[in-house]
Amino acid sequence: MPAWAVQLIAHHVRPKIMHNDQFVATAPPDRPPLTSGPSSLPVALTVNGSTHVVDLEPRVSLLDALREHLDLTGSKKGCDQGTCGACTVWVDGRRVLACLSLAVTCEGRSVTTIEGLAAGEELHPMQRAFIECDAFQCGYCTAGQIMSAVALLEEGNATTDAEIAESMSGNICRCAAYPNIRAAIREVRDAGEGGHRATA
């Protein structure tokens, strides 16, 4: 079972908790009421099935928490203002922009990033299709594209090319691999292996 599938059920079963990558004994409640800041506070983030407790100021975005505090740099910072989609991750299974999410608001939610998509060494079908269809060049928007693409198939709105194009328009690819991105999505759709649960 891939990491993202683990994390879908993780917070229902008592997640393993790591503090700065060290195991600690107990889980915090899912979303405790709290007032805090502006100084940093321990925030429990469940990412790709593992819960990490990290000290974060409330102003820290989910994107910066992932990139600067958890060393999960697959999610990219292209604009930091919700206009490019490079930071697309899933929160509770829905694709969202990590740059406009404060990390502290994600406590008790399941975050999935590109690093959690492959099942170990085995790539997700969408990752394979992106390689086969050459659906990227510089690769900087690719994590966001793939997180969007897999979510799109899950959402079930990829029947036509026009639907795919519209639904992928929140992910800018400046290399303009758009036709190949659509081809990759079609390929996975037609093989019937798309969606979050494809490799579970």
Binding site: G74, T113, L117, R128, I131, G139
Partner: peptide, 15 residues
Amino acid sequence: DRVDGPQKVTGAARY
């Protein structure tokens, strides 16, 4: 296929 494809689609490629 691109030799750096796997790194780019998994987020492992470091910028």
